[in-house]
Amino acid sequence: MAPMFVKASGLFCAKEEAMARARKWGLAAVLAVALSGAAAAETVTIFAAASLKTALDNLKPLAEAATGQRLRMVYAGSAALARQIEQGAPADIFVSANVNWMDHLQERGGVEAIERVELLGNSLVLIGQAAEPQLSFDHAASFGEGRIAMGLTKAVPAGIYGRAALESLGLWQALHGRVVETDNVRAALALVARGEARYGIVYASDARAEPKVQILLSFPKNSYGPIVYPAALLTENGSSAFAFLQSEAAWAAFEAQGFLRVETQE
């Protein structure tokens, strides 16, 4: 009987060891889930208009140091970002280059913003690679030949503003056949920088971000509506980063890239 007892005891011990391992790995799994949740909380996802890329990339180290959180930046056209958020994409903060897309998201997309501010302003310019002294908004013929790159004129804010400006100046009918529409304003900027388009209609901040282009003309402020970048806080997780974006330290970086304070756009 003794050998049977020893064998049973061995089985008992093995069972206890297995249960101990299960408890150990179960605890480890719980800890892993908890830690992954904590890591997620320490990451703030910001959906931002493509025209903000240079400024926000420069600000990212400062913001991370100030908030203690890691920033995950997602750049695209405002329309595309709004639609992604509307469909459930996880964003803590959304910065649009157009008030209408923010309104769309809140009113028709069913997204509740904890807080919303008018963060920045901008201005609209015509760019090219080389100076063209003869160029004038008064004469469509002065544009000569070549393509004009701009954002989608019915969806991308820079394209919407650009078309409005050309229509206001009486140039749209003469020039629209040469327009190449892009998914976002930075794509239009890239076409001019690579010499694939003679002209581009972009924001002044975009022109400053690309050394291969120069501003040929600035559109009159009364030829397009106010360019306002609304920012919305969508989750409490983004509160610290949202506050930082409104700080004077952040404003210095935005100003260096050619953005405007909203109140100076009159």
Rank of each mutant, 00 (worst) to 15 (best):
A89N: 12
A89C: 11
A91H: 08
D92L: 04
I93E: 02
F94V: 01
V95S: 11
V95R: 14
A97P: 14
N98F: 15
N98T: 13
V99R: 11
V99G: 09
V99C: 06
N100D: 15
M102G: 14
H104E: 13
L105C: 07
E107W: 07
R108V: 09
R108T: 11
G109M: 01
G109D: 02
G110V: 00
V111G: 05
V111Q: 04
E112W: 02
E112C: 08
E112P: 03
A113Q: 07
I114A: 05
I114N: 09
E115Q: 13
R116F: 01
R116S: 08
R116G: 03
G121M: 01
N122L: 06
N122Y: 02
N122W: 07
S123W: 14
L124F: 03
L124W: 08
V125D: 05
I127R: 09
I127F: 03
I127P: 06
Q129P: 06
E132T: 04
E132G: 00
P133D: 09
Q134F: 10
Q134G: 15
S136E: 04
S136I: 12
F137N: 04
F137T: 01
H139K: 14
A141N: 12
A141Y: 09
A141I: 14
S142P: 02
G144Q: 00
G144C: 03
G144Y: 01
G146I: 03
G146W: 06
R147V: 15
R147F: 15
I148S: 08
A149F: 04
G151R: 08
G151T: 08
L152R: 12
L152P: 08
T153M: 03
T153R: 12
K154L: 11
A155M: 14
V156E: 14
V156L: 05
P157M: 02
P157F: 05
P157V: 08
P157D: 04
I160R: 08
I160P: 14
Y161K: 08
G162C: 05
G162F: 00
A164H: 12
A165D: 12
L166D: 00
L166C: 04
G170F: 01
G170N: 06
G170E: 06
L175F: 07
L175Q: 05
L175N: 07
L175K: 10
H176G: 13
R178F: 02
V179K: 13
V180W: 04
T182N: 11
D183I: 13
N184Q: 00
V185A: 15
V185G: 15
R186G: 13
A188N: 13
L189P: 11
L189K: 02
L191A: 06
L191T: 04
R194P: 13
G195Y: 08
G195T: 12
E196Q: 14
A197R: 07
A197Q: 06
R198N: 02
R198F: 06
Y199R: 14
G200L: 02
Y203D: 05
A204L: 06
